[in-house]
Design a protein around this nucleic acid. Sequence first.
DNA 1: CTAAATGTTAAGCC
DNA 2: GGGCTTAACATTTA
Length: 249
Amino acid sequence: MPEGPSLVILKEQTARFVGQEIVRAEGNTWAIDTARLVGQPVVSLRTWGKHFLIQVPTMVVRIHFLLFGTYRVDERRDKPPRLSLGFADGGELNFYACSVKEIDIDIDACYDWAADVMSDAWDPALARKKLRAEAKKNADALVCDALLDQDIFAGVGNIIKNEVLFRIRVDPRSTVGALPPAKLRALVQEARQYSFDFLEWKKAFVLKKHWLAHNQKTCPRCHIPFHKAHLGRTNRRSFWCERCQKRYG
DNA sequence: CTAAATGTTAAGCC
DNA sequence: GGGCTTAACATTTA
């Protein structure tokens, strides 16, 4: 569930709750006092990268699905919800196995919307600037890590990472600093473009069949086996083709 | 059945 | 404090 486009789908599915009063709030979350939500209207439902933000007049709740989180709209799973919200129209929103946290009420001061690849405010020039700054700070910074950096590409996850690098034909072990300007530009451009393709495919329930690299065995361009390794600061799975993805640096 | 996976945070250690 | 590594969390799928 967790990459940025999936959160956009959640926001769309829950749009009708904006403006409605929360008539019931419960769940096994220990991090917030759910009673404080009851009786309050939903001011906004927003996303920033992989964060889902529920804003009411007196507080903002942040949901993060981590690796295994799920949700249901107007339905329940056979599991105790971490947070369950009931609305004035009889509808409900249930979250499971996720992180729930109260954050600063001034969300615009806390979040750089220009960093969210799904946002209207996404700023590719700023992303390029951050990449150049990262390369300057750390000459060994890898492109596979840069794509997963939520301060630069909020919403990009491991699937998007693998697909973007395949599309732009860059080896995940390349260093950011060694990328030619055109590749750096392509990296930023595809991070957004693929995220929107992901969104459309996920909505149509055809996302997996469009994976060209992630979880794949053979390069669809070269018809040779993909290399697979756990790379980068956080040892995430990478799939790449040694023939058509070039290693820089 | 076991292992691994769309992710982040906090603790522990130089 | 900084930077790095490790553990913890929790659920579904292969």
